[in-house]
Each structure stands twice: as C-alpha cells, then as structure tokens.
Design a protein around this nucleic acid. Structure first.
Length: 649
DNA sequence: GTTGGGAGAATTTTT
DNA sequence: TTCTCCCAAC
C-alpha cells in the first residue's frame, strides 16, 4: 500500500508520461533534441522505484560520466535516497564492475589495471620497437592504435579493419597483425586492459560464461539506455543480452544526434531496435521546450540533408523571437572581434556571460578566440581536451600509487623509475626482467634488490621513495586518503616537478586536487580501479565556477552534447573546418558532420549565431580561402539574418 | 644508454 | 605555436 503515488500526468506531457509509466516489455523512445529526454528517463526510474522495483535491479547505461551523474542526482531529487543503489554509469564503468567480480573467468586478476589512451599508446610503441624490423617504414603508434581500436569496436579482426586502409599504408599486413598480437599478449601478462578490452571482455563474460550471464540477466529487472544512437555493435549486443530474460529494455535516443560513429557507433542500432525486439513500443518526443521556433526551424532544415533516418520534426512550444544570425567575416581575428562585440551587446541585453557558449568542431579552432578573450580580460572556462587525470604530472603520482598496490603493473613501474636521473627505457626493461616480471613493494627482499641494481645517481632518489613503500604498508596509508600523496611530494616529487616542468607549483596544486579525489573515493583500491575512467571530474570544478563566477563557456560540439545555453555561437562554420576537411568526400562522414552541426545549433535556447570566416591563416603565413559551410548554404532563404563583416552588424 | 638540442611536421571528435 | 622525432654528444 502506497500512501501517495505521484501523478506523472501533471509533471510530464502526454508522450513523456506514456514513456515514463509504460508497462513491462521493450520500449524505444525517440527523443529529439530538447524534448525532455533526461526528464523522461529520470521519471521512469522514479516510477519504477515507486512501483516497488528494487533500485539495485535497475541498470542505467550512459555514455559519459557527466550524464550518469546528472541522471542519478536528479533521480535522487525525485525519488529519494533509495535510488542511490541503482546501477548507473557508462558502459565502460559497468563492464569494469562486471570484470572486477568475474574477470578471473577470463584469466584476469581482479585488480587488473586499466590502461588509458596514453598507456596503451606507449605500450603499442614498445611492441612496435620489439616486433618490427624496419621501423621507419612502419606506421606510427597512433595509426596502429586506432586500427586496433576500431577492429575491437567493430567486433572484427585486424585483417578486416586493415583492408580499407591497406593500400594507403603500404605495409605488410602480417607485420601489423604481429604487433597487434604482441600488444594483446603483453596486456594479458600484465593483467591489464585498455578501454576497448573493457567492452570486449565485458561482453565475452556474458556470452561465454553462462553462470555469469544468468546472474546478471536475472539481477537486472530493467535495463535503461541513454543516448542509444551512440551504441556500437558490442554495446548493442550487451544490452540485448542483459535484457534478454526479463525483456524490460528501454532505449532512449535520437538518431539525428549520433556523432560517435568514428568510435564504432552505428545509428542503425537504433533504427533496427524495433526489429530486434518484437512487440517493441515506440514513443516519439517531438515537443521541444528548449529553443525558440526560429532556431528549431533552422535545425529541422539542416538535418533534412540526411536521408535514411527516422522522421522527426521538432515542434516548438516557445514564442517567436529572433532569427538566428549568420556572420560572414574575413578571418579568425575578425571573427574573434565580432564575437567579443556581440558578447558585450548580449550582456547589455541582460544575459550573463555564463548564459553564453562558443562551440566549435575542434579544439584548435578556438585558439585565436582564447587569445583575444585573454587580451580583453573576459573570463572564460574551456572544457579542454585532456582531463586532469591525463596530465603527465598527475599520471606520475598515480604511477607511484599503482606500484604500491599492484606488483604486476609494468606501465606504472616504468613511469615511476623513468623519473629517476639516468634511467631510461633500456634500464627499466633490464630491471623488470631482473625482478622476474613483477615488483612487490611488500617484499623487502625485492626492494633491496632493486636498490642495489640502480646506478648510484638514481639510488639516492630512489631510497626516499623506497622508504615510503615501507611506510605505506606499515602505516596502512592506503586507508588514509591523500596523505600518501603529500608524503610523495615531500620526499621526491616536489623536487622532480621543479626540475622537470616550468610551472612546477601550478602542477603541484593539481596534485593536491588529486589527493582530495582519493579521499573522496573511499579507498585506494577503489580510486585506482577507476582512475582511468574518471575523465570529467573537472566537471565539478566546472559546475562550481559556473555557479560562483560569471564566465563564457568554450567547448567542442561533442562535449556540449546534452547541454544548453540561452546564447550559442558556432564559430568556423566554414568548409574544411565544419565540416572538417578530414571527413569531406565520403557521404557517411558528411552525414555525421551534419548531425554534429544539428547538435550544435540545437544547444541554443534564445539566440543562435553562426560565424563563417572566409580565410584561414597557417603558421607559416600562408592563407587558405574557404567557403561558408555547406550547412549554411543548404538552408532555405529567410531563416537567418545575414551580415557581411562585423561593422555592418 | 641517456639526454638534450634542433629540425621538422602538423594540427577531430572521446570512453 | 607546439609536439614529436631523430641524432649527436655525454
């Protein structure tokens, strides 16, 4: 008996309510941009919990940490603390959880390490050095890395992934296969997985091990997937299996917003979802609450260029206002000037800086703007390409912690020893072999041996670190949060930072942040097990600064997905920039760029400004001319207000 | 074997 | 402008 059931029909519109309160069975929610997708999902969770579904038997899959966190926070507000137990996170996170528990079935230790992009690149480089004879002619580690990755995400062999690019590369495919195999082998002996392995092995666990599959299939009464259009083959399969018994699967997405196909995402997954799930209900959310009609008209028009997608039309709920603006400007500098002028004007209209965002295709498109904003002393935040945890100095400290905890972690071992004077690749290799392929900081004998094997110059520094290993285990510093990080700085890292980097003290501040994060994680193992997956923790800082300070937001379109601002500027809407020149030519890519543009424009609530510079300078003083973006040219006349040069504005 | 200098190249998107 | 790679000197 429940005293008051929430009246969802008062909180949601008809379609949203239908989705949120649907009965059991497969359900596909096609939610166009700004139609309250998150809201619907959150209330779906609340509804299920209210109906008595145990939160622990709910699985909510997302693509970014930010989405997972936001969803959980909002669900908590609506349905109370009880939802805290619900399984929510990115596919990678959830696989991580599966594998921590059952990874031994696949021959992995439960404390396997996760290699982030940088780790895996380094390891691939080592493999190339060891397996390839003429390295000069061989593709670079990044190329090999993305080849291996795309094979994994498309669930095919390296050979198949190779076929498309082989004539360009002009290498013996067997050589590449050799490197790939060596890479896989090394990872296994190290007990390590890269990002793709998390997905691949997570899925293997479910397909190859019946008891594990049964366990999770029965555990999860409901599986909910956000941004379903961005699933790749592995992820779609995983969802199919996990929901295979209870058949309570809810996929929410918008094929117009599939922007990760370079990572293996295939919007056909969402198109074919109803075919794969017999009796699937489909709910379309088309009422847009975010944007003014003029923006929606532009959005609807621009996506028309893409065939073979679900037909959806954004229907406005807001009243008419201003048409989006297009500025044709000379170059990046004039664009920056124009933008600054417009920002000031919008401020006079009553918008705060934090109400505005500048979006662009690629990070480097924002350089001129950043310089200009700096000169004008206009405060801005930028969601940068690399996260706190990917920065070299942070990885250095984490390497120390990883060595403390995991005797098999060869990558961390190498990184830590590499900080010592006079120790490089070969020395590290030799030491690792000498130690027998593992280094246990609990073992005094092994520690002694390592000390003795070091050159005198390095030994002095190492002894300080070595002493800390002793303290670490004796005083159980693993349970003391960030304390050990502080000590590491004191005895070694402070000096190292000053020597190795120009801005040592700034970096040391980051380290203090890191210490806080460890404390917050609860335990050292918990922290280390997910550190590679923690990417958007700057989000917290981000949120804080957005609430307390008034700053203009700069972001790539990809990172802006799911967000909204009253005023949005899209810069470099010129051919070769947006769409990116790298993707011009193939229609698949063209379609993806168009979807990306659609995502960009649908972030705007009130005002949308598109900027198209007509020339681009290269560093060496050269000039490229570029036409306005096809995405602007394709628009029917009359949807925008056009200005040539900023002065005419 | 390591390190640092210098030349050269090259610039997407992310878990 | 910055990162990366190669080579020559310690």
């Amino acid at each position: 008996m429940r005293p008051h059931m929430t009246d969802y029909s008062k909180l949601l519109n008809v379609e949203q309510c239908e989705a949120a309160t649907a009965g059991d069975g497969p359900l596909l929610v096609l939610a166009a941009a700004g139609t309250g997708k998150t809201r619907t999902l959150v209330y779906r969770v609340a509804y299920l919990v209210e109906k008595g579904v145990v939160p622990d038997s709910l699985l909510l899959l997302t693509f970014t940490n930010r989405a997972a966190r936001e969803m959980l926070e909002r669900a908590r507000q609506v349905a109370g603390e009880a939802v805290g137990n619900l399984w929510s996170g990115t596919f990678h996170h959830v696989c991580n959880r599966f594998l921590r528990r059952f990874g031994d079935r696949l021959g992995y230790p439960n404390d396997f390490t996760i290699l982030d992009r940088d780790d895996s690149r380094t390891l691939i480089d080592l493999c190339i050095k060891d397996a390839v004879i003429n390295k000069k002619e061989f593709p670079k580690k990044d190329v090999i890395g993305s080849l291996i990755s795309s094979a994994a995400n498309r669930a095919c062999d390296i050979e198949d992934a190779l076929e498309e690019v082989l004539d360009e590369l002009k290498v013996d495919p067997l050589e590449i296969v050799k490197v790939a195999n060596l890479y896989a082998e090394r990872k296994l002996t190290m007990g390590a997985m890269d990002f793709d392995d998390l997905l691949v092995n997570g899925l293997r666990l479910l397909t190859e091990h019946e008891p594990v599959r049964d366990f999770y299939q029965n555990k999860f009464r409901h599986v909910l997937v956000d941004e379903y259009q961005d699933t790749n083959l592995l992820q779609a399969k995983m969802v199919d299996i996990l929901a295979g018994v209870n058949r309570n699967v809810m996929a929410v997405g918008d094929d117009f917003q599939c922007i990760y196909s370079w990572r293996g995402a295939d919007f056909r997954n969402i198109m074919e979802f109803p075919k794969r799930w017999e009796g699937c209900r489909i709910v379309k959310l088309e009422q847009n609450y975010r944007s003014v009609p003029e923006v929606l008209e532009l959005a609807n028009a621009c996506i028309k260029g893409n065939p073979e997608q679900f037909q959806k039309t954004l229907r406005p709920t807001r009243t008419a206002r201003n048409k989006p603006r297009v500025f044709y400007v000379r170059d990046g500098d004039e664009q920056a000037t124009a933008l600054l002028g417009l920002v000031r004007r919008y401020q006079e209209d009553g918008y705060k800086l934090s109400d505005m965002a500048v979006l662009y295709r690629a990070h480097y498109h924002s350089i001129e703007l950043q310089m200009m904003l700096g000169r004008a002393r206009l405060p801005y935040v930028i969601t940068s390409g690399i996260s706190v945890f990917e920065q070299a100095h942070v990885k250095d400290v984490v390497a120390f912690l990883r060595v403390c905890e995991n005797r098999l972690d060869r990558m961390a071992f190498g990184r830590l020893l590499g900080m010592l004077a006079g120790v490089g690749e070969k020395t590290i290799d030799a030491l690792w072999v000498k130690l027998g392929g593992s280094f246990d900081t609990r073992d005094p004998e092994q520690r002694e041996r390592l000390c003795a094997a070091l050159k005198p110059a390095a030994r002095g520094q190492w002894q300080e670190i070595d002493r800390l290993f002793g303290e670490y285990h004796r005083e159980n510093l693993a349970a003391a949060g960030g304390e050990v990080v502080q000590r590491f700085c004191d005895v070694f890292f402070h000096t190292y930072l000053a020597r190795a980097y120009e801005n040592g003290d700034k970096r040391e501040e980051d380290i203090r942040e890191l210490a806080l994060q460890i404390t917050k994680s609860g335990s050292m193992t918990a922290f280390l097990q997910e550190v590679a997956l923690l990417t958007n923790v700057d989000h917290e800082y981000d949120k804080m600064s957005r609430e307390h300070a008034d700053m203009l937001h700069l972001s790539t379109v990809h990172q802006a997905k799911g967000l909204e601002w009253p005023v949005v500027f899209v810069i470099w809407a010129s051919e070769g920039m947006f769409p990116s020149s790298r993707s011009v030519g193939e229609s698949e890519n063209d379609a993806e760029e168009r979807r990306l543009f659609y995502v960009a424009v649908t972030r705007a609530k009130d005002e949308l400004v598109l900027c198209a510079p007509e020339m681009r300078r290269t560093r060496d003083g050269g000039v490229f001319f570029c036409k306005p973006s096809r995405f602007i040219k394709e628009l029917p006349r009359g949807l925008t207000r056009e200005s040539y040069g900023f002065r005419n504005a």
